[in-house]
Design a protein around this nucleic acid. Structure first.
Length: 924
RNA sequence: GCCAAGGUGGUGGAAUAGGUAGACACGCAAGACUUAAAAUCUUGUGGACGAUUUUGUCCGUGCGGGUUCGAGUCCCGCCCUUGGUACCA
């Protein structure tokens, strides 16, 4: 083998690694541990494109480097395999999603393996494996059997709560619970029947049933997330979506809001992601204030939440959200018709309408009045949909002078505007700054805002009409999906009350089905399953868990994937603890990454894991972009017009497969054969050609601009693909893929090969003491490459490897010691080639087992340094000095230097700055 | 609107604590090898002017200011691009 035969080399070593179980990981207390994890993929039917492995390659380099530094490295891979595409495919074809999924996993695994990624495949998991989802169900049961004690700030077993109820009732219980739990005494608890008790407990459980308004899509038979709804239609399929009340499983993530927020300060994550989670949690500190109404027959109280209790003297009205419990009852008879009309209208307004209509102010007057707690003046009570039912108390005090939404509302309905901050002009809009001195505010007059807030809260608490309160934007997470292809809930119903299945009966496996569609009555698909009930004949829950259930704890399972008695064993958990470095897309910032933190904290509270944060350090890889091509179709026809002629026609653009386009010229024949509907396509050409438009976009199947790694590997090999993917640019940045550039990286690997092989065969390597120059070159590279790996700048690491090889080639280096080191620093990047050359060097153990070379400062020391000499910051000459030349000597010789005379002449020298081994600057 | 990241040659990008801007690679140009092409190798390659033998001069990191002996890097004010978010009281 005299030429670089990457195909043979890569096959050989991949086989070797698999046979030798090279990457199999064990708990080794003698070694420090390092857990490096990639976000596991959903195995879609399309397979991988070159954008997917970006993060996998980066983490693989780190994993291999860490191994060479003596760590026991846990580097696993698995599959997040529940999900809609497989289910949709099942609905269309009748094929069980498990079959589709298994096939896709097989393909993904094969694609990943051919990249030479050093995963411990024996630890592979799939969320769809009953042995795995048994434990997802088990964790759900733990949530069901727990409540959150806000005094202790931790989750506790529901049994402890029952004991408290038996002894003291629930009046003293500080818990994160439903808003409207009724209060009861110990005696009342004793007298309750079983189903009432269960109802009460449900209000405290961390997994509980909740009435929710959801985006229901009858056609798909499922509930959609807000982002899955566009223009009142489902994003997939474009079916109508309506708002519907439903009982759904929810997880009480809000209990953890504060800990989720505080934990962010302790982890090494991208600032933007932390900031996104902070905003998502949305903590605001303010006050709750109680207003009494003046209605004669019945006195109501309305609690409002505000972050500006200092502005209480600026209140001119109150607003209830249309969903507020009192909205329908508080109004006067005269107003009742218009109130109900308004509530109905608001309820039917889709989120999209509300969004589109930010400027459009609506509301209804109730006819009722509240009393201002200090001035005793009557305040009109309104209902308006700019107040949200789900936030704070669902009611606000209107302070138009100091809140822009209140301002718009007051202007629209002609309500008074009273400024309570000195010197503010509210003729044009609200003054919202939390700065200034209070006026028109009785006992608050003259106080600065911050002090006034403290004062008023104190006063409210004194009078028992309010208290300090913290609100969070974070909502409890809906945990039910009306689908088949997810984890079944280990829950059955008795008299409509949910009960947990006994742990021994887990996993509750998905039943075989004839159809995967919703039932004719709109129940989830499991409604079609025969005998979907317990042994005693009680019906089982019909919903399944959402996609994020399995991904919220999988990082623990990798530590101990074959444990049958625990989701993770104690020994494994105490050794591996948490993920040291986690790589994955930024799109999971507020979904997966938040839920995983939530579950980890919960499992920590119950003592099952020893860490409170699952991911110590996080990196998001940037997306890979590619040029995508467009054609212009003349509307309503099958005729396409070339790019520069399109303005003469009414056209719509359409993505076209980039493989049908070369240098923006479309291959007409292949285009016609691309899809059946294009067979009879006709074209309006320019200069005899069809020119496509193009744009750099995210690489994605839907844009027809994907590059399949298989074809790249076939053409250049996995090592080239790995190297080039890293060479493209900084890991975290979005960057375009360009097939032209890959040649340079391939040439680099050939150059490496040429250091070891001539045209005729392996070169004779020498065992002499290496030359000074060669030592300098290799040690410079060892240093830079190691530094680059440590700061995850793999693009410059590759550059530095290239520089090293260029220089060694120029030196015609054939020294055994030097080349050995070169192979070792190349190994994390191009592992197949490294193994091959390592073997050639005469070693019989794999390159993996060899430590990373030690950098020696002494070899890199320069003896002379060429100083750039600048006059007033502009470089005018270069003079070489011995590295240890004293500053005075440098100064003397610089001033005497001939080429500088024309710049210095006639000028007075103010100052000479000499930065040792950097530069000299003369100020004239 | 708000939050975050970014803006450097024809292109991807480099410059790690404020110290020679453009490393490395692509592309392009010229040359060598070849009947020829491909591949490979050598040289050059920010722009303008000057020189064309070696010098050299000016401009240049989105725009406008500032700090500094010295700014791609720090500060102030803008513009643009990408991502996130959206009535959260």
């Amino acid at each position: 083998m005299n030429h670089y035969d990457f195909k043979a080399i890569e096959q050989k070593w991949q086989q070797y690694w698999e046979e030798k179980r090279t990457f199999s990981t064990t708990v080794d207390p003698q070694k420090p541990k390092y857990y490096i994890l990639d976000m596991f993929p959903y195995p879609s039917g399309e397979g991988l494109h070159v954008g997917h492995p970006l993060g996998y390659i980066a983490s693989d380099i780190v994993a291999r480097y860490k191994r060479s530094k003596g760590y026991s490295v846990l580097h696993p891979m698995g599959f997040d395999a529940f999900g809609l595409p497989a289910e949709q495919f099942a609905i269309q074809t009748g094929q069980h999603p498990a079959i589709t999924t298994a096939k896709n996993i097989q393909r993904y695994k094969q694609q990943l393996q051919q990249l030479g990624l050093s995963y411990d495949w024996d630890r592979r998991i799939s969320t769809t494996d009953p042995n795995y989802y048994k434990w997802t169900q088990w964790i759900f049961l733990q949530l069901f059997e727990s409540w959150y004690d806000t005094n202790l700030q931790k989750a506790r077993p529901i049994k402890a709560l029952i004991t408290i109820f038996e002894q003291h009732g629930n009046q003293q219980v500080q818990a994160s619970c439903d808003k409207d739990v009724p209060l009861f005494t110990a005696q009342a608890w004793q007298q309750m029947d079983e189903s009432t008790r269960q109802q009460r407990l449900l209000g405290y459980r961390l997994a509980f049933l909740e009435d929710t308004t959801v985006n229901w899509c009858p056609e798909l038979g499922t509930v959609l997330a807000n982002e899955e709804v566009k223009d009142g239609l489902s994003e997939r399929g474009g079916y109508p979506v309506i708002r519907k009340q439903m009982k759904q499983w929810s997880l009480r993530i809000t209990a953890y809001a504060n800990r989720l927020l505080d934990g962010l300060d302790r982890i090494k994550w991208p600032l933007s992601t932390k900031e996104m989670q902070r905003n998502w949690i949305g903590k605001s500190v303010g006050a709750e204030v109680v207003f009494k109404t003046t209605t004669k027959d019945q006195a109501y109280t309305i609690s409002i939440f505000t972050t500006r209790p200092d502005t209480i003297f600026g209140v001119t009205y109150l607003v209830l959200s249309p969903e507020h419990a009192l909205a329908k009852t508080i109004g006067t008879n005269a107003q009742q018709t218009s109130i109900e009309a308004y509530i109905t209208q608001a309820a039917n307004r889709s989120d999209r309408d509300r969004l589109a209509d930010v400027t459009h102010v609506t509301g209804a007057f109730t006819g009722a009045y509240a009393i201002h707690p200090f001035t005793k003046k009557p305040l009109p009570i309104w209902i308006a949909d700019y107040v949200l039912g789900g936030y704070g108390t669902g009611a606000v005090m209107g302070v138009p002078a100091h809140d822009s939404r209140d301002y718009a509302f007051a202007k629209h309905f002609n309500l008074p505007i009273v400024s309570v901050i000195a010197g503010t002009n509210t003729t044009q809009g609200a003054y919202e700054e939390k700065e200034g001195v209070l006026i028109n505010s009785d006992f608050l007059d003259g106080l600065p805002v911050q002090e006034a807030i403290q004062q008023i809260i104190q006063k409210l608490e004194e009078l028992e009409i309010g208290k300090q309160k913290t609100s969070y934007r974070l909502r409890n997470a809906i945990f039910s999906r009306q689908r088949y292809w997810g984890e079944p809930f280990p829950i059955y119903y008795k008299n409509g009350i949910p009960y947990p299945l006994p742990v021994e009966e887990l996993p509750l496996e998905l039943p075989a089905m004839a159809t995967y569609k919703p039932t004719s009555t709109g129940e989830p698909p499991l409604g079609n399953a025969p005998n979907w009930e317990t042994k005693a004949g009680y019906p089982l829950e019909l919903s399944t868990m959402p996609g994020w259930a399995g991904s919220s704890w999988y990082f623990f399972r990798y530590m101990d994937p074959h444990n049958h008695s625990n989701f993770v064993g104690k020994t494994a958990q105490s050794y591996w603890k948490a993920v040291d470095l986690y790589l994955g897309g930024a799109e999971h910032a507020t979904g997966h990454l938040l839920y995983a933190r939530f579950w980890t904290k919960f499992l920590y509270d119950l003592g099952y894991v020893r860490v409170e944060e699952p991911f110590e350090e996080l990196i998001h890889q940037g997306m890979i972009q590619n040029k995508s091509s467009f054609v212009y179709r003349i509307k309503g026809t099958n005729q396409f017009v070339s790019h520069n002629l399109r303005h003469a026609y009414d056209t719509i653009s359409m993505h076209v497969d980039i493989h049908l386009v070369k240098n923006d010229v479309l291959d007409l024949e292949r285009f016609k054969n691309w899809r059946p509907d294009l067979h009879d396509a006709s074209f309006i050409l320019e200069n005899g050609q069809y020119i496509c438009d193009s744009e750099i976009e995210k690489m994605s199947k839907s844009k027809y601009n994907t590059i399949n790694p298989d074809t790249v590997v076939a053409q250049y090999g996995a090592d080239t693909l790995r190297l080039y993917t890293m060479f493209l640019g900084p890991l975290e940045q979005a960057k375009p893929w360009d097939m032209h550039g890959i040649e340079g990286v391939f040439r680099f690997l050939v150059k490496v090969w040429r250091l070891f092989y001539s045209e005729t065969g392996p070169k004779a390597l020498t065992n002499e003491t290496p030359s000074k120059e060669a030592l300098k070159v290799i040690h410079k590279a060892i240093k830079k490459v190691e530094e680059d790996i440590k700061r995850y700048t793999f693009n410059t690491a590759v550059s530095n490897l290239m520089i090293c090889v260029n220089e060694l080639t120029a030196l015609k280096c054939s020294n055994q010691t030097i080349l050995k080191n070169l192979v070792l620093i190349l190994a994390p990047f191009a592992p197949h080639l490294a193994e091959e050359l390592w073997q050639l060097l005469g070693y019989t153990h794999g390159v993996i087992a060899e430590p990373f070379p030690q950098y020696e400062e002494a070899y890199v020391q320069e003896e002379v340094y060429e100083y750039p000499i600048a006059i007033n910051g502009k470089v005018r000459a270069k003079i070489t000095f011995d590295a240890h030349t004293p500053q005075l000597e440098i100064e003397k010789r610089v001033l005497a230097h001939e080429a500088l005379q024309k710049w210095i002449q006639g000028q007075s020298i103010k100052k000479i700055i000499i930065v040792p081994n950097k530069m000299v600057n003369i100020v004239v």
